[in-house]
Simulated scan of single mutants.
Amino acid sequence: MLHSHSQASLSIHVSSATELVSAQTFGKQDPYLQFSLNYEEKNDFLKTFTHKNAGENATWNQTFTISLNGEADLFVEVLDEESTVNEVIGFCAIPINQVVHAEGANVNGLFEIYDVKGERAGLLNLQLAAIGFPNSCTPNFDCAPVQCQSYVHEGHCMRMKSSKKKATGVAVGGALLGGALAIGAGFLGKKLYDNHQEDEAEKQQQEEEAQRLREEEETKRREEREQFEQERAEFERQKSQRDEETNDGEEQDTNEGGNCEREEKRCHKHDDCDGNHHRRRNSNSSSSGDDDEDAKKWNPIGTYAAGDRVKYHGQVYMCLQGHTSNPTWQPGAAHSLWQAE
Rank of each mutant, 00 (worst) to 15 (best):
S136Q: 12
Q127D: 14
V85H: 11
R120G: 11
C92P: 03
L110V: 02
V88K: 02
V116E: 13
F91M: 08
P134I: 09
K117Q: 14
A130Y: 01
I89M: 05
R120A: 09
A129G: 12
A130F: 09
A105I: 00
G122F: 00
Y114Q: 07
L128C: 10
S83D: 13
V107N: 06
N106Y: 15
Q127K: 14
I94R: 05
V99L: 06
T84L: 12
F133K: 08
G90C: 02
R120Q: 14
N125H: 14
Y114T: 09
G132Y: 10
N135D: 13
I96N: 12
A93K: 08
L128P: 07
K117P: 04
F141K: 07
V100H: 10
Q98S: 04
P139V: 02
F133T: 09
A130H: 05
P134Y: 05
L123G: 02
F133G: 13
A93N: 11
R120C: 03
F111Q: 06
K117R: 12
N97Q: 14
P95K: 09
S136C: 11
G118T: 03
N97I: 12
V88P: 02
Y114H: 12
F91V: 03
E112H: 09
D115H: 08
G90T: 01
E82S: 12
Q127P: 00
E87K: 15
Y114L: 13
E82G: 10
E112S: 14
G118I: 02
A102W: 03
N106R: 04
A121I: 01
D115P: 00
A105G: 11
R120K: 15
L123P: 01
L126I: 08
Q98V: 06
I113P: 00
Q98Y: 00
N125V: 08
I113H: 03
T84A: 12
E87G: 08
C137F: 08
A93F: 09
L128A: 05
V107A: 06
E112K: 13
Q98A: 05
I113T: 04
L123R: 02
D115W: 02
G118H: 01
I89N: 04
C137W: 07
E82K: 13
L124C: 01
R120S: 14
A121Q: 01
L110F: 10
S83C: 10
N97V: 15
P139C: 09
I96G: 11
I113F: 07
E119N: 14
Q127C: 06
F133L: 12
G122S: 08
R120F: 11
G132S: 04
F133H: 15
G132M: 05
G118M: 08
Q127S: 06
A105S: 15
F141P: 08
V100K: 01
E82R: 10
T138M: 14
C137E: 14
D115S: 03
L110A: 00
G132N: 10
I131R: 15
G122T: 01
C137N: 15
L123Y: 04
Q98T: 04
G104E: 07
G90M: 04
L128Q: 00
G109L: 03
N97Y: 10
P95Q: 13
H101Q: 13
E82C: 08
A130M: 11
